[in-house]
Simulated assay, not measured.
Amino acid sequence: MMRLLGKLGTAVLIAGSLMLAACSQGPDPKTEAKTEFTIGWSIYAGWMPWPYAQQAGIVKKWADKYGITINLVQVNDYVESVNQYTAGKFDGVTVTNMDALTIPAAGGKDTTAIIVGDYSNGNDGILLKGANSLAALKGRQAYLVELSVSHYLLARGLDKAGLKAPDVKTVNTSDADIVAAFGAPDVTAAVAWNPQLSVMKAEKGVNLVFSSADIPGEILDLMVVDTATLKANPNLAKALVGIWYETVALMQRQDAEGKAARAAMAKLSGASPEMFDSQLATTFLYADPKSALAATTSPSLVETMTLVRDFSFSKGLFKGASSADDVGIGFPGGKTLGNPDRVTLRFDDSFMKLAADGKL
């Protein structure tokens, strides 16, 4: 289940190089109201409610309520889905907090998160052979997808252990190759996400020494939409939020209907029901809009995004920026992180609040 964070591809470099020129432009005032929208998504346990909702008719139900059409489009490569959104092919996309910042927002595309859907609660982890403590990372080579969620998790783990980045040498390894690479006897440290993490962790003598469960709430999964499109078409957000909470409520049920919904999501993701349930177990879903609202308005979100943007800037993911403050991030209540004149990533709690108040 692919979900990279901040992968440094060609499109990211191109987008980032335009950041300083485009960041201050804000939403396009010429964007007009429309009735048909396209949303991109990719396979990940926390995002499987979207294709299931389409299959089950929940998307059509809410779109019809607001007199619009919503087309959900799967993109097999996660980063490509975010790049296509950034290029304007999609009106919205499923994306992580870090990628929303480092790809569209850093590239000057004003983007708004309307749903904070979940956080990784053990789906990402650091593995060691022959040791069971973070301190044992020192002096090792760690195999991972560089400039990804794995790299961010490693940085947070090193900080927790009192180590520095130079204490570990990273070896860039694709997610497709990391299981095989970790199988080599001389490879003793790796950072990965599920399902690869589960496979690697099952090997004899392997210990999970740090995971996203140790930094709860930092690796967030979002639904974002183009800010100008949202401003001209608020019904799109209302429909998307309605779809999300109806579907997540269904998948949380322990009756036959809930089990059937989860099994259908598993099939859509290419996993067995048991594998899908195990991935859900390490995914903290904000199933109740009130809990999502609380997470979005909490001061801890500002703290999390400070960590994420500082890491991103330190790794050169704000191409052309002279400071981490060059990309502004807006939060509910008017709080801004970074340059208030260059806000291109916004967390909007208003639609989740409508859901929490039963006013959709």
Rank of each mutant, 00 (worst) to 15 (best):
2 M>A: 09
3 R>A: 05
14 I>D: 13
15 A>M: 03
16 G>L: 06
16 G>Q: 11
19 M>E: 08
20 L>Q: 14
21 A>Q: 14
23 C>R: 15
24 S>A: 15
30 K>E: 11
44 Y>T: 11
62 W>P: 02
77 D>P: 00
78 Y>I: 02
79 V>C: 07
81 S>A: 15
83 N>D: 07
84 Q>L: 15
85 Y>Q: 02
88 G>I: 11
93 V>G: 04
96 T>D: 02
101 L>C: 10
101 L>D: 00
108 G>C: 09
111 T>E: 02
114 I>Q: 05
115 I>F: 11
121 N>R: 07
122 G>P: 01
125 G>A: 06
128 L>R: 06
133 S>W: 03
135 A>H: 10
137 L>H: 06
139 G>T: 06
146 E>S: 12
155 A>Y: 05
155 A>V: 05
161 A>W: 11
163 L>K: 08
165 A>I: 07
170 T>I: 15
171 V>C: 07
172 N>L: 03
182 F>Y: 13
184 A>F: 03
184 A>V: 06
185 P>F: 08
191 V>I: 13
191 V>K: 06
193 W>S: 11
198 S>G: 08
204 K>L: 12
207 N>L: 07
208 L>R: 09
209 V>P: 01
212 S>F: 04
215 I>E: 08
215 I>F: 13
218 E>V: 09
221 D>G: 15
226 D>R: 07
226 D>V: 10
229 T>A: 09
236 L>Y: 09
240 L>Q: 03
243 I>G: 00
244 W>M: 13
244 W>P: 01
249 A>P: 00
254 Q>P: 00
262 R>C: 01
263 A>R: 12
265 M>K: 13
271 A>Q: 13
272 S>I: 08
273 P>N: 10
275 M>H: 05
275 M>S: 11
279 Q>C: 05
284 F>E: 01
287 A>R: 05
288 D>V: 10
290 K>L: 01
294 A>Q: 10
296 T>M: 15
299 P>F: 02
299 P>V: 04
304 T>A: 05
309 R>I: 01
310 D>N: 14
310 D>W: 04
310 D>C: 04
310 D>S: 12
315 K>Y: 09
316 G>N: 02
319 K>W: 02
322 S>D: 07
339 N>I: 04
340 P>D: 08
